Amino acid sequence: MLYAEIADLAPKCRFRDCTQAHEPRCAVGAAVMTGDLSAARVNRWRKLGTEYRANTPVLSGPRGNKTSDPPRRRR
Rank of each mutant, 00 (worst) to 15 (best):
R53V: 15
K12Q: 05
E5C: 09
R46D: 03
A30C: 07
H22W: 03
N55R: 14
L9Q: 09
M33S: 09
V28M: 12
I6A: 12
Y52V: 15
P71C: 02
R63E: 04
K12V: 00
E51R: 00
R75P: 14
R41Y: 05
P57R: 05
P70M: 11
R46H: 15
G64N: 01
K12Y: 01
D69A: 02
E23K: 13
A21K: 04
M33R: 11
P11E: 10
A54Y: 01
T67V: 02
V28W: 09
P11Q: 07
R73W: 03
A27C: 08
K66S: 13
G29L: 07
V42H: 13
L59H: 09
R14Q: 15
P24A: 12
T56K: 09
E5W: 06
P11H: 05
E51C: 00
E23N: 10
N55C: 10
V58D: 13
K66P: 04
M1L: 13
N43C: 10
R75W: 04
A54L: 14
A4Y: 05
R16A: 15
L9K: 11
T19H: 13
D8S: 14
V32R: 06
P24G: 09
P24S: 12
D69V: 01
T56F: 03
T67I: 02
R75G: 13
C26N: 10
L9H: 09
I6D: 06
D8C: 10
R63Q: 03
T67C: 00
G29S: 01
R25Y: 07
K12E: 05
G29K: 02
A4V: 12
I6Y: 05
Y52N: 13
P24F: 03
T50D: 02
T67Q: 01
A40L: 04
N65E: 11
A40P: 01
T56H: 08
S68C: 05
A4C: 07
G29I: 01
T56W: 04
R44N: 13
W45N: 14
D8I: 05
P11G: 11
C18P: 12
R53M: 15
D36G: 11
R72L: 08
R73C: 03
G64D: 00
A27F: 08
N65H: 05
C18M: 10
P24T: 06
A27L: 12
R53L: 15
C18L: 11
A31Y: 08
A30P: 01
R14G: 13
R14H: 13
G49P: 03
R14P: 04
C13T: 14
N55P: 02
L37R: 04
D17T: 11
A21S: 03
L48S: 06
R44H: 14
K66Y: 10
L59P: 00
V42D: 07
N65L: 08
R44C: 15
Q20I: 04
G64F: 00
T56V: 08
F15H: 09
D8T: 07
Y52C: 15
T50Q: 07
Y3L: 10
A40W: 02
R44K: 15
G35N: 10
R41L: 15
L2D: 14
R73S: 12
